[in-house]
Design a protein around this nucleic acid. Structure first.
Length: 488
RNA sequence: GGCCCCAUCGUCUAGUGGCUAGGACGCAUGGUUCUCAUCCAUGUAACAGGGGUUCGACUCCCCUUGGGGCUACCA
């Protein structure tokens, strides 16, 4: 098995532009990227748009935006040309045609004139006989001169690879070891379509060779077609890259993750308020394990510790609970400035009043220990700008009464009023209250609970003193007055 | 159906012939606490089944079962 040397690692992420970048694709990109970074190699983005039917407008943008959001910047790719471009397959058609022709000339491929009707009929027959669907090699033995003539005459045709009909082929895989396939079950797959576009099988192999890809790291769904790729490399006389087939990310129901399973688009997670750090952290752990008990990682820690031999073989279920946990942990790791910066878009989206003037850093701090997603910062701190109407009864602590509550609210008002504007900070206010509680020998909750409700209008809210500080002296007093009136 | 991959708590996983099978999420309980959280502690829960190999199997081999992928002129 060829050894990985530090200088020559070149890997690629090769998505098809058929829509958004889903979580599974992102995980493939991440593993490629981590591997490249780890080995100081090159990470390439290649767009595999050889299927004209499935092409979706703007998906290249969605893909690059998703990658950029996660910090997976590519060294070569669309808009960042290296010496192996272009990096969009539809712009490389001549290359594929040339190589396909070469294959035909070397008797590794052949022209096929079978119509789709004949093919579907064949498939129906095979199905009826409970046979495995497989091309019957109808055109394989056509006279090559004759076939060439028909092609020249403009007859519609495809090109198929000419696989051996017997024997076995072994795929060497970095995560699965050696996997053996029998040629007798392999189909003479189409490599050039009637429309002159190559299929994945051909374009992928040619580009990986031409782009000097050292390691093909992709999802397990590609494993069954790998022997065909290996055949192609051999037919061209090219050196094989190292293959590594990653386990699939499964939906909670157990199948391949798909749109039916709720959010699968990377950008959707961004919009819901997940940190790219959390998404990356989470999917890194889905299929890879550091062999230590560490679970929360920074990107540089991932690069540091990543290696393909710590990759798992079995598919993993995408577990939202775990993602939420990691997101919470990553949120708590952010400093106030950064947290505010990350939360700002969600506040903007919600038409938060006078956002320019709001001390977002302080506001957001109130919710930091309480949010699962960044988006939750908004509802969690809404009361700061908008004191909702609340039932006066909730001002009264358990095992207390209206009269005592009123008394304590008046006490709070007196204390707050006495605090200097400059000293109106959480720590000072807390000291003030604690001293008073001790002096009067009252229960902490009997004083603090009414203040909390008065200031927030809520039963569950952040630290009373931090709320007070964010609200400021004037607004705090106003809200206390409001509560006092409710108790009178 | 055929081919291929996989198989430890519900989930993500550690384990590489001898362990009370470890950690994390979740859940439960308790602690901290004015609330909700955070944080901390404790508990809960697993080697799919059957054969071998071996002094000894979660670990190695085979079969069964189960799950997944592929089976297109899609990637």
């Amino acid at each position: 098995m060829p050894k990985t040397t530090t200088e020559n690692v070149r890997v690629r992420f090769a998505p098809s532009p058929t829509g958004f970048l889903h979580i599974g694709g992102l995980r493939t990109a991440l593993f490629n990227w981590l591997f490249a970074k780890k080995h100081k190699g090159t990470f390439i983005l290649r767009i595999e748009d050889t299927d004209q039917q499935r092409y979706v407008e703007k998906s290249v943008e969605a893909i690059t935006e998703s990658l950029a959001w996660c910090g997976l910047h590519y060294d070569e790719g669309p808009g960042k040309e290296g010496d192996c471009g272009p990096y969009i397959q539809s712009q490389r058609l001549e290359i594929y045609r040339k190589y396909a022709k070469e294959l035909v000339q070397n008797d590794k491929a052949y022209y096929c004139f079978c119509t789709t009707e004949r093919l579907s009929e064949l498939k129906a027959q095979q199905a009826a006989q409970k046979l495995a669907p497989r091309y019957d090699q109808h055109c394989r033995s056509l006279d090559s001169v004759e076939a060439e003539k028909r092609v020249q005459a403009g007859e519609p045709h495809v090109i198929r690879m000419k696989l051996p009909n017997e024997g076995t082929i072994v795929v060497d895989d970095l995560v699965r070891g050696q996997v053996e396939f029998s040629y007798r079950y392999l189909d003479d797959a189409v490599i050039m379509k009637t429309d002159g576009f190559p299929t994945y099988q051909l374009a992928n192999v040619i580009d990986d060779h031409l782009m000097r890809i050292s390691h093909v790291i992709r999802a397990e769904e590609w494993l069954p077609s790998t022997p065909k790729h290996v055949f192609l490399y051999q037919a061209f006389g090219w050196e094989l890259p190292q293959f590594a087939h990653l386990p699939l990310i499964l939906s909670p129901q157990g199948g391949k993750l798909s749109k039916r399973d709720g959010a699968v688009s990377t950008l959707e997670y961004r919009d819901m308020g997940y940190l790219p750090e959390a998404i990356v952290n989470f999917i890194a752990l889905l299929g890879w394990n550091p062999k230590t008990e560490q679970e929360i990682f920074t990107m540089s820690e991932l690069i540091e510790q990543f290696s393909l031999d710590k990759t798992n073989k079995s598919g993993g279920i995408f577990n939202l609970d775990k993602l939420n946990f990691i997101n919470g942990r990553q949120i708590r790791l952010l400093d106030a400035t950064e947290l505010a910066r990350r939360c700002r878009p969600y506040f903007e989206k919600s038409n938060w009043p006078s956002l320019e003037k709001a001390p977002l850093e302080k506001i957001v701090r109130l919710a930091q220990d309480r949010m699962v997603t960044l988006a939750e910062a908004v509802p969690l701190t809404k009361f700061i700008v908008e004191l909702g109407d609340y039932d006066p009864a909730i001002l009264i602590p358990k095992k207390s009464n209206q009269a005592d509550t009123l008394k304590n609210l008046l006490l709070a008002k007196e204390m707050y009023a006495g605090a200097g504007e400059d000293n109106f900070v959480a720590s000072e206010l807390k000291e003030l209250c604690i001293n008073k509680i001790k002096a009067l020998a009252i229960k902490t909750g009997d004083l603090l609970w009414p203040i909390r409700v008065a200031l927030s209008g809520l039963k569950a809210s952040p630290d009373v003193f931090e709320i007070s500080e964010v609200l400021g002296k004037q607004e705090s007093l106003r809200r206390l007055d409001l509560a006092i009136r409710k108790m009178e």
